[in-house]
């Protein structure tokens, strides 16, 4: 469904992505792992065209999305949902207005109907009775779940998760993992998740890809990644300070 070919992107004179190739099949849960600042978010933002590639292509269902006009782009985005790292809820709107935002903008549904659908999506992520709360009054875990409800409100075919478990306590992180899994089963969506949380990666992934030095250096099932022969991947998976990965400002 998603095919990335030779994607390059630089900011100033720093090459962040340096020829990324990756394919995500329909219905698959792909997890991209990599260190902080390795360009994972940049990669994810290219899939929904928040960023445009300097070189290479992003193909969705076989068509290059960099050539889309505004109309085509909006059609594409209606088929996708994205959960942002900080949830990115609109803080001028209540929870249900956040969840129902796309429905209010793009359908002629009555507010009451939108609210009903929003409540239903909120129940899917395990929340109820907070429809009229403002986002500022929610905890981090709740904000992420509201963000997730907003991402699935238009029943997308594909969901992009930007560090869904970062900044959450381990139990809340696991609740989010379970939600991602159950949404996948119930809605049979394709998903791309970027994370550096290996517990989460092993739990939700069909396949894991490692982004390092601007390229995908290994792709495999969780089992294959666990048994990798690559010293870079095994260092990251095991979370060791010593190894081939050099961290700026680190001791290695």
């Amino acid at each position: 469904m998603i095919r990335i070919e030779g994607l390059t992107k630089s900011f100033g004179d720093k090459a962040v992505l340096d020829g990324v190739d990756l394919e995500v099949k329909r219905g698959e849960s792909m997890v991209v792992i990599g260190g902080s600042g390795s360009g994972k978010s940049v990669l994810l933002k290219h899939i929904i065209r928040l960023l445009r590639p300097d070189g290479g292509r992003v193909l969705i269902d076989g068509s290059d999305i960099s050539g889309l006009d505004e109309h085509g782009l909006n059609d594409l985005r209606r088929r996708m949902g994205m959960l942002f790292q900080g949830a990115a809820l609109f803080d001028s709107m209540s929870v249900w207005e956040n969840v129902g935002f796309a429905l209010r903008q793009h359908t002629s549904l009555k507010p009451r109907e939108v609210r009903r659908i929003a409540s239903e999506k909120l129940r899917m992520v395990g929340l109820s009775g907070i429809e009229d709360v403002m986002p500022a009054d929610l905890s981090g875990g709740m904000r992420k779940r509201v963000g997730l409800a907003r991402a699935i409100a238009t029943e997308p075919e594909c969901i992009l998760y930007d560090e869904p478990t970062t900044g959450l306590d381990p139990i809340m992180a696991d609740i989010i993992n379970d939600l991602i899994l159950s949404l996948r089963e119930r809605l049979s969506v394709t998903s791309v998740t970027i994370t550096h949380d290996m517990t989460s990666a092993f739990k939700i992934a069909d396949r894991i890809a490692m982004l390092y030095s601007g390229r995908i250096i290994e792709v495999g099932t969780p089992e294959e990644i666990r048994k990798t022969s690559s010293p870079v991947v095994s260092q990251f998976v095991a979370g060791r300070a010593e190894g081939p990965i050099r961290v700026e400002g680190g001791y290695a």
Partner: peptide, 12 residues
Amino acid sequence: TEQIDALETLAT
């Protein structure tokens, strides 16, 4: 806080 990006992903 990426709310402007979020607007775009919601086709707005």
